[in-house]
Simulated scan of single mutants.
Amino acid sequence: MKFMMTFHWAPDTEQRTEAIERFLRTGGLPPEGVRLVGRWTSADLGSGFDLLETDDAAKLTEFAYQWSDLMELAIVPVLEDAELADVLGRVAINGPAPAA
């Protein structure tokens, strides 16, 4: 399953310096069991996102923990268009789920 992890940090020079040093030291790579599909960082260096793939939510938590002392993180599951089209095709055929 794919997950989008967004990151944001305040313009705190100490935190930014530590984040840069940690990234250069580790490559910012996730733990074994999580595949980094891609990473994009905003031009102002204030935020960005990683596209990750794993079936192990605990490994995502491990990766988030490695960076949560320096930045605010959010992780959400995401679907590719083909996966979304499959879901929408089933919903369109069967109609929306009944309200609870």
Score class of each variant (00 low, 15 high):
residue 27 G to A: 11
residue 34 V to M: 02
residue 89 G to W: 02
residue 93 I to Q: 14
residue 5 M to G: 04
residue 96 P to V: 11
residue 42 S to E: 13
residue 99 A to E: 14
residue 89 G to K: 07
residue 65 Y to F: 13
residue 61 T to R: 15
residue 3 F to D: 02
residue 16 R to W: 05
residue 46 G to S: 14
residue 61 T to K: 13
residue 26 T to A: 02
residue 89 G to Y: 04
residue 95 G to N: 09
residue 84 L to Y: 09
residue 15 Q to T: 10
residue 26 T to P: 01
residue 12 D to G: 08
residue 11 P to W: 10
residue 34 V to N: 01
residue 3 F to C: 03
residue 4 M to Y: 04
residue 93 I to H: 13
residue 53 E to I: 07
residue 18 E to C: 00
residue 99 A to C: 03
residue 76 V to N: 10
residue 75 I to Q: 10
residue 21 E to T: 10
residue 34 V to I: 08
residue 98 P to K: 01
residue 84 L to T: 12
residue 12 D to Y: 06
residue 30 P to S: 02
residue 56 D to P: 06
residue 46 G to P: 01
residue 18 E to K: 15
residue 35 R to C: 02
residue 26 T to Q: 02
residue 36 L to P: 08
residue 47 S to N: 07
residue 99 A to H: 08
residue 81 D to Y: 04
residue 86 D to M: 07
residue 13 T to R: 09
residue 46 G to Y: 02
residue 93 I to W: 11
residue 1 M to K: 12
residue 15 Q to C: 03
residue 80 E to M: 07
residue 44 D to I: 06
residue 51 L to G: 01
residue 87 V to A: 10
residue 85 A to P: 00
residue 24 L to E: 14
residue 79 L to F: 14
residue 34 V to Q: 02
residue 89 G to E: 04
residue 84 L to K: 09
residue 44 D to F: 08
residue 91 V to L: 13
residue 23 F to I: 03
residue 34 V to F: 01
residue 22 R to S: 03
residue 12 D to P: 08
residue 57 A to T: 14
residue 54 T to L: 09
residue 2 K to W: 01
residue 63 F to T: 03
residue 32 E to G: 10
residue 75 I to E: 05
residue 2 K to G: 00
residue 3 F to M: 04
residue 42 S to R: 12
residue 59 K to M: 12
residue 82 A to M: 03
residue 57 A to V: 15
residue 4 M to K: 06
residue 81 D to F: 05
residue 80 E to P: 00
residue 98 P to A: 04
residue 68 S to F: 00
residue 35 R to Y: 00
residue 47 S to F: 05
residue 1 M to A: 13
residue 2 K to R: 15
residue 15 Q to S: 09
residue 68 S to Q: 13
residue 81 D to V: 04
residue 14 E to P: 00
residue 73 L to G: 03
residue 55 D to Y: 06
residue 54 T to A: 13
residue 30 P to Q: 01
residue 38 G to M: 13
residue 38 G to N: 11
residue 59 K to Y: 03
residue 16 R to F: 11
